[in-house]
Design a protein around this nucleic acid. Structure first.
Length: 140
DNA sequence: GCCAACGTTGGC
DNA sequence: GCCAACGTTGGC
């Protein structure tokens, strides 16, 4: 089981919306590296949801429930989406500043590749997010 | 509003 | 294949 981070602008699609809908198809990824990350996802993987823009913080934990599915759009190219399901909000949200200041979290791909909207999270980083976020990791 | 960091496009 | 110009994302 692997961990991931999904970035979203809350004005476009927010964590609250995901909670309301319970699950959603994570579509609209139009970047090859992000697409490759989507393709590497497996059902049961865990995805942290990060709000960019005004919020700039990790807000919630979701579960990947499908493999990457081909996205049928008018766009040229071979794009995919995965379905995710809301698991739990972080009891304590983790802001960008705190991510930068944490020796563990500052290694996150989120900081190294700021424009990448789907990025991998290591097990150690995930543990730290749950710890700082005062949230229990999901149990299978 | 500005800028850094990329990604994309098109000319050569 | 290289590079300049341009567009986009995201933080400040």
């Amino acid at each position: 089981m692997r961990y991931w981070l999904l970035k979203t602008e809350p004005q476009t699609y927010s964590w609250d919306q995901l909670v309301k809908e319970k699950k959603t198809l994570w579509t609209g990824i139009r970047n090859y590296q992000a697409r490759n990350n989507l393709r590497a996802m497996k059902p049961g993987d865990v995805a942290f949801i990060y709000h960019s823009g005004d919020d700039k913080m990790i807000v919630g934990v979701a579960k990947v429930t499908t493999e990457a599915i081909r996205e049928h759009t008018s766009d040229e190219g071979d794009w995919v989406a995965v379905e995710i399901e809301a698991l739990t909000p972080l009891a304590r949200e983790i802001g960008l500043e705190e991510i930068r200041n944490s020796p563990v979290l500052s290694g996150m791909e989120l900081l190294r590749q700021t424009r990448l909207s789907v990025s991998p999270v290591t097990n150690i980083q995930a543990e730290m997010i749950f710890k700082i976020g005062k949230t229990k990791p999901p149990t299978e």
